[in-house]
Design a protein around this nucleic acid. Sequence first.
DNA 1: AGAGATTTGTCCGTATGTATA
DNA 2: ATATACATACGGACAAATCTC
Lengths: 252, 252
Amino acid sequence: MAKYLHVADVLRARIQSGAYGAGEALPSEPHLIKEFEYDRGTVRRGLAVLRQEGLITSEQGRGVHVRQTRTLRHELLHVLRAEPNNDEKALKNGLFEYGTNTAAAAVRVAIKYNVLGAPDALANVFEIEAGTSLLERRYTFLANLVPHQITRSYLLADMVEGTPLGDPDNERPGRGTHAQLLSVGVEVDFISMDITARMPTPTEATELLMGDGTPLLVDQRRSLAQGRVVCVADTLTPADRIRFGLDLDLQD
Amino acid sequence: MAKYLHVADVLRARIQSGAYGAGEALPSEPHLIKEFEYDRGTVRRGLAVLRQEGLITSEQGRGVHVRQTRTLRHELLHVLRAEPNNDEKALKNGLFEYGTNTAAAAVRVAIKYNVLGAPDALANVFEIEAGTSLLERRYTFLANLVPHQITRSYLLADMVEGTPLGDPDNERPGRGTHAQLLSVGVEVDFISMDITARMPTPTEATELLMGDGTPLLVDQRRSLAQGRVVCVADTLTPADRIRFGLDLDLQD
DNA sequence: AGAGATTTGTCCGTATGTATA
DNA sequence: ATATACATACGGACAAATCTC
């Protein structure tokens, strides 16, 4: 077996056994070199393996530490049961705030509007011609000022044009998209979701402040009204901060 | 910016633009060294970045290729709507086969039974004392002889003891666990699911034949009957082969 | 079947840069 | 300011898998 894999195996076992507790520092590179009697490059490759597995973080000047993760449960069908959140406070430039206990703990949402021509992928989903106008709404959710989720939601521009829904100044994220659509006479009667996971692109990783070895949970959601796709929403969430929850009462 | 990141950026852009199509080979290391005029180690680090992003595979002697992924949609609540699969054919040693078109295309399930004392984590979920006997059933699903999913399902041993459910020889995976539980008088009335993603351990990666840069989709499911947890099932699926699907008809 | 070329994998050593304590 | 820590980069050597002729 390769030496760097040996390093990774030994250190991984120690982490999983709790020998190095969560948040604690691992021995420094010079220490590990002395312990294993391998070249520095070899030891570093072993550490790289653990970094890519999401088990450790390494910071220049600070050392290598065991990563600790706690996930928040995010109810998948929240949007269905959502009673409107009236605790909402509009700040400025599409920034909204919820749960006003303390400034740091507040949940915030930043929203950007954008009209674009449908690229091929989206055109296929909507079953429209490529280039047709779509309204893109981009939501960035922050908890404790840390980005936890990015949602890109697309609506047919000619469906919302002239309605309050197409107007950023009327945005009320606490209401939910389906309630918004209902207000313009569109009743969503079917939802199709695809849940996938993949590694983030570098852009996504920096936007969401993700560490190495952290996958992205992706929720691709299509809302239909009378067989027609009326809303497409892609939600990206770092898997080390959020897990999806789904509770089903079978008695109904 | 670091040189190895430059290499990664340039090659990533070419992959995403389609300059190197899916399945095609990238230029060999010597070629890239000549193009970028960097050291071999630097070029290789750039390639390592793309490998961890799941964009490429590299094989000794064969070269580096653009990875292509096609996922199968796996309905999350399949278990609820499942009509019993009577196309089931029992092979031997807990191996079952479905869809008998061709040998290679057949879906197979390998099943192993095991009785163990509940470790702390499971004891907490079941709300029992650690060490209490649990029946572990381990299902490995294979499609085209490739493992696509591993499920570890746990039942209270004293609930199934003496019933057909506790007996490997009576295993009928096509029936589904809930139908099986019903047959011993336990009616599941609530299901709670947690969906997460993480990088696989090396053991999991080899068992599921996963390439680098591929996360694992994890479905942790608890079945309750009258407020009591009666079944815990963890399902591991490679995210490059399977996506979870959830279709909701809102008209009910 | 076999020999050689090609390609990636592993490991060593060394030097320098840069962030943190 | 100094020491410690990790990050990046270069160069060289050999091993192992694959492909080609």
